[in-house]
């Protein structure tokens, strides 16, 4: 799933480790999220959005998710 985590993180001058600490995950999880290779749970998506003071849709691109069959 495409997302703006890397951009939003850079705007706030957060490192990957900073963001990992703020949402309570490992840095590897942030790496996988930024690469768009891992789609987070709703809980993690909301935590990330809250850290950036955005909505979930501002962080994650719903258009990049395949439509359910």
């Amino acid at each position: 799933m495409k997302n703006r985590i890397k951009v939003l993180r850079a705007e706030r001058d957060f490192s990957q480790a900073d963001l990992a600490d703020l949402v309570g995950v490992s840095r590897q999880t942030i790496v996988a999220l930024e690469a768009g290779k891992y789609a987070p749970s709703l809980t993690l998506a909301f935590k990330i959005a809250r850290v950036f003071a955005c909505t979930v849709e501002d962080v994650f691109d719903p258009a990049s998710v395949d439509a359910a069959p």
Partner: peptide, 13 residues
């Protein structure tokens, strides 16, 4: 560097 407050880091340690 991930901190001690991070639950994932605490679980791993």
């Amino acid at each position: 560097m991930a901190s001690e407050k991070n639950p994932t880091v605490r679980a791993a340690r």
